[in-house]
């Protein structure tokens, strides 16, 4: 029982990380019909700038957090303006390759700025791990959990209650129709990019204390986040979060009950099974466009 709980906690920590990254994928998809394969790199930039701001420049964590999120969100908007809007034929596959190119570019830039070594920073609040029925949970994990759920809730309200949110959703359903009813669709897409990359930065900033960020961390995180988003149902906010937790817990159970070498294989095999039997994800949001 104690072991089981410990696997579960381990899965919960990883799952919250995957979930919050998946949220970034899902929310961009919901607003623009696009998957940003450089999302992991924005997480990396968020994590590394968090370390620089708090460790080198000694800015208090809370301020550093907002500076990072705002800054990376701005960077995401610049990226949209320069590389996405300028595309002559915005077909999904073209945009995917552009974001793949962007991920390589940003990784290279990250390497130049922060060097090749991993960095580290202390947790937000110094506190010994919690002991729950013999299993240990880090306080930072709770921070990650709380912030992930908080963000999903905020986004939920944003889409349901605000005019901008509704307008953004409308753009994804039909850009032409949205434009006809007077929604500035270009503006909405720009905003969606800012929000999505800003969320990537949130993920980066809160995981920095537990992950020892380095310039090449983005690829794996992006992959797992994408995976979680698909598992939960692309475009569904709560689905993404759930997909993240599911992936994290599955991985941890894979280590516990199968073998740690086959950890990823276990997770991906279950993912394939989910896809085969429920191709739209656990919570489906909208039908997914073909290439």
């Amino acid at each position: 029982m104690q072991e089981f709980l410990q696997y579960f906690f381990s899965g919960l920590t990883n799952g919250a990380i995957y979930g919050i990254i998946a949220l970034g994928f899902s929310m961009l998809y919901r607003s623009t019909d696009l998957i940003n394969f450089s999302h992991g790199e924005f997480v990396m930039i968020g994590a590394l700038s968090m370390v620089t701001l708090t460790m080198t420049l000694k800015i208090p964590v809370i301020w550093a957090f907002f500076i990072v999120v705002f800054g990376v969100g701005l960077l995401g908007m610049v990226f949209e303006r320069l590389a996405i809007r300028t595309v002559k034929r915005p077909e999904p596959i073209v945009l995917i390759i552009i974001t793949v190119g962007a991920s390589i570019f940003l990784r290279g830039a990250g390497m130049l700025v922060w060097g090749k070594n991993a960095q580290s920073m202390p947790p937000f609040t110094p506190h010994p791990p919690l002991d729950i029925a013999g299993a240990r949970l880090l306080v930072q994990s709770i921070w990650i959990l709380v912030i992930a759920i908080l963000i999903a809730a905020c986004l939920h309200l944003f889409y349901r209650r605000t005019l901008t949110g509704k307008a953004m959703y409308a753009c994804a359903i039909n850009k032409q129709a949205a434009w006809l009813v007077g929604i500035p669709s270009k503006m909405m897409i720009l905003l969606a990019f800012g929000l999505s990359t800003g969320m990537g930065a949130v993920a980066g900033a809160i995981i920095a204390p537990v992950t020892m960020p380095a310039y090449d961390m983005g690829a794996m995180l992006g992959l797992k986040g994408f995976c979680a988003a698909m598992l939960g149902g692309l475009g569904s906010l709560w689905g993404s979060l759930l997909g993240g937790f599911l992936l994290g817990v599955l991985e941890a159970m894979g280590v516990g009950f199968v073998s740690s070498g086959l950890k990823d294989a276990t997770a991906f095999l279950l993912l394939l099974l989910v896809l085969y039997f429920r191709p739209q994800g656990i919570i489906s949001a909208a039908s997914v466009k073909r290439f």
Binding site: E3, Q6, Y7, F9, S10, G11, T13, N14, I17, N117, A118, S120, R136, I207, V210, T211, M212, A214, M217, M220, L221, E251, A252, V255, G256, S260, K263, D264
Partner: peptide
């Protein structure tokens, strides 16, 4: 563990149940 993994508590829980006298960890940062 994978080179980019962020949490190894599950593996260490398995190790703890095997009650070894010492652990050898073989890898490179981080």
């Amino acid at each position: 563990f994978g080179g980019a993994d962020k949490d190894m508590t599950a593996q260490l829980t398995n190790i703890r149940s095997a009650e070894p006298d010492a652990i050898v960890c073989w890898g490179t940062n981080p």
